[in-house]
Write a protein that binds this DNA or RNA. Structure first.
Length: 936
RNA sequence: AGUCCCGUAGCUCAGUUGGUUAGAGCACUACACUGAUAAUGUAGGGGUCCGCAGUUCAACUCUGCGCGGGACUACCA
């Protein structure tokens, strides 16, 4: 029997496109080819010529947020870069020029530290410029590593010409833009409270602070109120304000006491004194004093608004101030305030002046005017202060408190907060004589930007409304220098355009290293004189700029310096970054660009969540749940990772795990096999003679093409709206339902068994080719490697898949008739199941179906103009028009029975027995095909 | 600790202004096919919509309080 079966040949799918993807092996080879073909440049050139010819859609550009050039790429990088690549590729396929210029952020502390760590003690002897060169080399190493990693993900872009913040041209641009910040009136110099390491004698950035447990003396101290001041407010006498602090050494700098305006304070008698204490802490206060408290009355904090008090031992009168940040967690609800040594304190009370009693070495200066304290380290002074409080009767209580306290991570000394002079970008002063402040301009910019998802708008709006002036100076080395001079006598800065330009010119040649080496004499203007003290001696400023300025002006600098970008691109960029960049790059780009140019860089900002593990936990070494792009490249390949990227809801945090990736590999196989079937159907397809004009397409082919056009519209719109999840789910579902489940099942017969030149086979193959092309294009932004591979196997495909345009066209569906057919088919499938279970049938071709139809449905089915046996993949169909009462439910009923006819050995339907001679058991169609084959 | 965001099948996601029996794809199970074959088709099972309380004729959907997760800002007198 088996050789009888073999006797009849059918036209099976045939393609060189392999079922097994082998992505980890094949992708790198494909990458090499892309590189050799200069694929990126080729696509861009194509879009440029389209635009020149008037057939393009103009320019739409995603501006890359620069990753920090430190360390190997992680999943967060991969997610971000792949998303950007999907955007760029969708724009290409929609007909835009969309140059993608990747960037790197290179200056700053983490690199400086890494290099210092490598150098060890050698760092101290090293000239600044040499140290900077080491930092430069370190950053370059990681740029190269990351570039390789990003390219491996399939990201196309101007990898040969990235923008790099440590490029001398970039550095010089930043210096020039900084000069413009001065011109715009955005820069001021003022005091700020910073983390100060007396061990390193420097201000520390957040990242340099580490927390460790420390035991401090926590004291409760009574500050007296003058009797006459107490009387003015009707307070009992003698009246004291008790405060609690863990840093007794800051008491000489006390300039105010903060109370909460709305909290209730009890006026209590303890022994022969009266105190104010916030109500929830009364018990605590009583325990500390060890005597009974008698509550006299209760007042809100605001009632103390005008109260003045005396310092515990210094001859000084200070005010009570109201502050919302006061809590009733610990202490007394009255907060010791020294603007020199606390951020809140400074913000609340710096108008009272700063005392500057503590020097950079952490010792009290002569200004303290106290022989016992002068010259003492502040932490060593703590016991002295406590003893003094004890002796004058101001100490109500002392205890040892172990708490988490900031330490300098290099010298391990405890940190103090210290007010120092720094450079700031001012948020509320008028800029450019526009009558508007940077804050106002920023908020306008937020309104004029499209935020995706829309919640981003609120988030950044709140930050810009509330943010303080931006401190932009750092006492570090690896960064853009603040190219001003300082008076050698009094430290007053000398800022002038001439110096900026000279510095910029030198830096443009040799990088920021040039600033340290630039001779002072060359820089100093001829008649320079200190505005404050009249001195003519100057030295170069050694502070550098906050790295956020570097990256914040990347849009401005890249537009001006990248060969692929133009000045007019600025202002219309798409930004796409993790949601943390609301506070980071979106924020700095908006403010610094506005301050330097008066214009914001972007008009669309897209954000995505963070990558978590399969359980929604943050990835960390200690949890052992870290997945790296590198290992995915080795095991599954970039297209699987890309599919994952396009299958999760990026507006929230996203999850990844081996299991989740495996699901995506399954989905990938489904798509790959669907495309492979189409390619197989196109074996030996000759575009010259096998194409059927659309007017001759069969109804079924027109149906599937309409369905495809609907899909293409949905997918294109989803891509352009950054909704990649929707795009891939639609594609996947189309592969599964419309193509594999419906269309392919039906066309197998005509593809395999019709004669080669049958009109419906030709129509079908024409549509298969269109579907294959179209699907490949739709999938290309995500499955770039695979799309490229398919394109090579497509008959008559020209150019590169990324040079194509999204398929478009009006869908001409006849939805009601086809949806009726699919409902009938579903019902049929359900009734087939029990028959299979009973071993009455195997395939649906073993059956005959009677359909009882409501009369009004008859024309619908007739309008399909296809043979129902073919559409339902059964051997025969009878239509019975139901008379009398209309049929319930869907308007049809099915009667399914095993077909008893002769099975055609070639096409397996049961309409056999129509052939002649030795082919007697064939069906009519097959016998004709076989006959023709014999004759030919 | 504060602010903001999130919590629907094993997984990834839909779920219109509150309104019948909460959907899709994958995975799983079974069956069929062996002419998409390390494929393919069909059917089926599976959900206290994080928990509790409230508003309502009616809550996955609105409110409050928890729990869990994440981002940001702090660590504080």
């Amino acid at each position: 029997m088996s050789d009888l079966k073999k006797k009849y040949s059918v036209f099976l799918p045939r393609t060189a496109f392999p079922m097994k993807a082998d992505l980890p092996q094949r992708e790198p080879k494909r990458l090499e080819r892309w590189k050799a073909d200069r694929l990126y440049e080729r696509i861009e050139a194509k879009r440029r010529s389209d635009n020149a010819a008037g057939t393009g859609r103009g320019r739409r550009i995603l501006h890359d947020g620069p990753p920090y050039a430190n360390g190997a790429i992680h999943m967060g990088h991969a997610l971000n870069k792949i998303l950007k690549d999907i955007v760029v590729k969708s724009l290409w396929l929609d007909g835009y020029e969309s140059p993608y210029v990747p960037g790197w952020d290179c200056h700053g502390l983490p690199i400086e530290h890494a290099v210092e760590k490598d150098l060890g003690p050698k760092r101290r002897e090293m000239p600044r410029s040499e140290f900077l060169a080491k930092c430069r080399a370190y950053a370059q190493k990681w740029i190269d590593a990351q570039r390789t990693g990003f390219q491996r993900l399939g990201v196309l872009g101007a990898w040969d010409q990235p923008y790099v913040t440590m490029n001398p041209i970039y550095e010089a641009s930043v210096v020039r833009l900084f000069a413009r910040l001065f011109e715009s009136g955005a820069v001021t110099r003022k005091l700020k409270v910073v983390h100060w390491s007396y061990g390193a004698r420097t201000a520390l950035a957040e990242a340099e602070v580490e927390y460790a447990d420390r035991t401090s003396s926590a004291v409760t101290v009574a500050f007296p109120v003058k009797d006459e001041d107490a009387r003015k407010l009707g307070l009992p006498i003698p009246f004291y304000l008790p405060i609690w602090t863990t840093t007794p050494w800051t008491l000489p700098s006390n300039l105010a006491i903060a109370m909460h305006p709305d909290m209730e304070y009890a006026i209590v008698q303890a022994g022969d004194r009266y105190y104010a204490v916030v109500v929830p802490l009364l018990d605590d206060f009583q325990k500390k004093l060890g005597v009974a408290l008698h509550i006299k009355e209760i007042r809100k904090g605001i009632a103390f608004q005008t109260l003045k008090y005396r310092h515990a031992w210094i001859d000084r009168e200070s005010p009570v101030l109201l502050a919302d940040y006061v809590t009733a967690d610990a202490g007394t609800g009255l907060v010791h305030t020294s603007p020199d040594h606390g951020v809140d304190d400074f913000n609340l009370a710096h108008h009272l002046g700063l005392l500057e009693l503590v020097g950079p070495d952490g010792r009290f200066t002569a200004a303290v005017n106290d022989p016992e304290l002068e010259g003492k380290n502040v932490f060593a002074a703590n016991p002295l202060v406590v003893a003094r409080l004890q002796s004058i009767g101001a100490l109500l209580h002392e205890e040892q408190l172990t708490h988490s306290y900031p330490h300098c991570w290099r010298t391990k000394t405890p940190i103090l907060f210290r007010a120092t002079e720094q450079w700031f970008i001012t948020m509320d002063d008028e800029l450019f004589h526009t009558g508007k402040s940077l804050r106002e301009l920023g908020l306008e910019g937020v309104e004029a930007t499209q935020w995706v998802p829309p919640q981003g708008r609120n988030r950044i709006h709140a930050m810009i409304s509330g943010r303080p002036d931006w401190c932009i100076s750092r006492q570090r080395a690896w960064g853009t220098p603040i190219t001003v001079l300082r008076c050698s006598e009094c430290g007053e800065p000398l800022v002038c355009p001439e110096i900026f330009e000279k510095a910029a010119a030198a830096i443009e040649q040799e990088g920021i290293e040039a600033w340290a080496d630039l001779p002072l004499a060359q820089l100093t203007p001829a008649d320079a004189k200190c505005a404050k003290c009249g001195s003519t001696a100057f030295q170069k400023e050694t502070d550098i700029l906050d790295v956020w300025i570097d990256s914040g002006v990347s849009g401005v600098v890249a537009s001006a310096t990248s060969p692929e970008l133009r000045k007019e691109d600025y202002g219309k960029y798409i930004y796409l970054e993790g949601s943390d960049q609301h506070r980071g790059w979106f924020h700095s780009s908006l403010l610094f660009s506005l301050a330097a140019t008066g214009e914001k860089p972007y008009n669309t900002v897209v954000t995505h969540g963070f990558v978590l593990d399969g359980k929604g936990q943050k990835m960390s070494k200690s949890l052992g749940n870290v997945i790296t792009p590198e290992e995915i490249m080795k095991t599954l390949g970039a297209d699987i990772l890309r599919l994952w990227t396009a299958s999760v809801d990026i507006s929230e945090d996203v999850r990844i795990s081996k299991d989740i990736l495996e699901r995506n590999a399954d989905a990938y196989r489904k798509i790959r096999n669907t495309l492979r079937f189409l390619l197989g159907a196109l074996a030996d397809f000759d575009s010259a003679k096998d194409v059927a004009p659309e007017a001759q397409w069969s109804p079924l082919d027109r149906w599937v093409w309409s369905a495809f056009l609907n899909l293409a519209k949905e997918v294109r719109e989803a891509y352009l709206a950054f909704d990649f999840l929707k795009a891939t789910q639609a594609i996947l579902s189309f592969c599964q339902l419309e193509l594999s489940g419906r269309y392919f099942e039906i066309i197998k017969d005509r593809l395999y068994c019709d004669r080669l030149d049958s009109p419906r086979r030709r129509s079908c193959r024409t549509v298969c080719l269109a579907l294959a092309k179209g699907m490949t294009i739709l999938v290309a932004p995500v499955l770039s490697f695979t799309a490229d591979e398919i394109w090579e196997h497509l008959p008559g495909a020209e150019g590169h898949v990324f040079e194509q345009r999204f398929p478009a066209g009006e869908s001409r569906a006849e939805p009601s008739s086809w949806s009726l057919l699919w409902r009938i088919k579903e019902a049929l499938n359900r009734s087939l199941e029990p028959m299979r279970a009973a071993k009455e049938i195997g395939t649906s071709l073993d059956t005959k179906v009677s359909i009882s139809l409501s009369p009004e449905l008859r024309p619908l089915l007739a309008s399909l103009q296809e043979t129902l046996e073919d559409l339902l993949v059964v051997s025969s169909v009878d239509i019975l028009i139901a008379g009398g009462s209309p049929l319930a439910g869907d308007g049809f009923e099915l009667q399914v029975d095993p077909h008893v006819g002769i099975k055609c050995p070639r096409c397996w339907n049961h309409r056999g027995g129509a052939g002649a001679g030795e082919h007697a058991d064939l069906c009519l169609r097959c016998s004709e095909v076989v006959q023709a084959g014999v004759e030919a």
